[in-house]
Structures are given as structure tokens and as C-alpha cells.
């Protein structure tokens, strides 16, 4: 009885791990980084996009101050802003990650913009992105390239 209960519990723990196999999760200090994804590009002329979920499990605020990746010469943080129905994409100098909260870089809001691509991003591949945090320091996360018509990370948001 106890054995099957334990087996059941083991299975319950295993399942999410299997589901998340394609989605790297990295923790550093108080931060848990997950669901890093991008969309496939057509060639290298257009900027690519970078989305990720950051959970701050600690009691002190942190700040995402920039991103770096070998696939793009000019990666930047941007925010899609709507003003009187007009969409613009100003540069975000940093993104606040308050204590105890989850911040998502997601379609229609904050996102990384990967300009001057070094290579075409192909569906099914992945590439590393280093997130630079004010307190936690640099954190590298493997970013999944999804089809151009993807809406969200294949693994869903971080728990």
C-alpha cells in the first residue's frame, strides 16, 4: 500500500518534469527562469523576438538590465506600448522583477528584440540567451525556437 502510494507520488513528480523536458528551467539565487522561447525567422534581415518567464522567490527586488546572445549582434529589451490605439515599441532600459512576483516577457508586452541576427532561427532548434540581473548577476538560459505562428512557450508558464 505504502509502496504504491510512493510510486504514485513519484509518478506525479515525474510527469511535470517530462512535460518540461523541452523547456529549460534555470535557477540562480532567488530567481527561477523558465519558458524561454523565440519564433523562427525568415532569413536574418528581420529582428527576432525573445520571451521568458522570471520568478523572484526571494524577499528582495531585482532588475533585468539587459540580454546577450551569440545569435544577435544587437539584442535589446523592448516593451510594446499602446497609446491612443497606436502600437509602439520603446526600448526598456530595465525591467523590474519585484520580490515574490513573476514577470513574463510575453507577446504584446515586454520582449527581447534580437537585432542584427547572425543566423536564421529555425523551428526546433535552440540558442542560449544570457539575462543580466542587477542582483542575481548573469543567468544563461536555453531558448527554444518555435514556429512563426507560435503563441506561447510549448511548456506553458512557470509554476
Amino acid at each position: 500500500m505504502l509502496k504504491s502510494l510512493l510510486a504514485g507520488m513519484g509518478l506525479a513528480v515525474m510527469l511535470p518534469a517530462v512535460a518540461l523536458a523541452d523547456c529549460a528551467e534555470v535557477s540562480q539565487g532567488q530567481l527561477l527562469i523558465s519558458a524561454a522561447w523565440s519564433r523562427a525567422t525568415i532569413g536574418t534581415a528581420r529582428p527576432a523576438v525573445f520571451y521568458v518567464t522570471i520568478r523572484n522567490n526571494g524577499s528582495t527586488d531585482d532588475r533585468l538590465t539587459g540580454i546577450e546572445t551569440p545569435v544577435a549582434g544587437m539584442p535589446m529589451l523592448h516593451e510594446t506600448v499602446m497609446t491612443d490605439g497606436v502600437a509602439s515599441m520603446p526600448h526598456a532600459s530595465d525591467i523590474s522583477i519585484p520580490a515574490g512576483q513573476t514577470v513574463s516577457l510575453a507577446p504584446g508586452g515586454y520582449h527581447g528584440m534580437l537585432m542584427d541576427l547572425e543566423e536564421e532561427l529555425k523551428d526546433g532548434e535552440s540558442f542560449p540567451v544570457t539575462l543580466k540581473f542587477e542582483n542575481a548577476g548573469p543567468v544563461s538560459v536555453e531558448t527554444a525556437v518555435l514556429p512563426l505562428r507560435a503563441r506561447e512557450a510549448a511548456c506553458g508558464d512557470a509554476p
Partner: peptide
């Protein structure tokens, strides 16, 4: 426009 990385794919996907 097709150089738009965030809003335009999202609008196209919404419309789909």
C-alpha cells in the same frame, strides 16, 4: 509590417 517581431505576429494569430 513583416519586420515587426511582437505585435504583428500576435495580430495575425488572433485573426487566424
Amino acid at each position: 509590417f513583416t519586420w515587426c517581431p511582437d505585435v504583428c505576429p500576435m495580430t495575425l494569430l488572433n485573426i487566424s
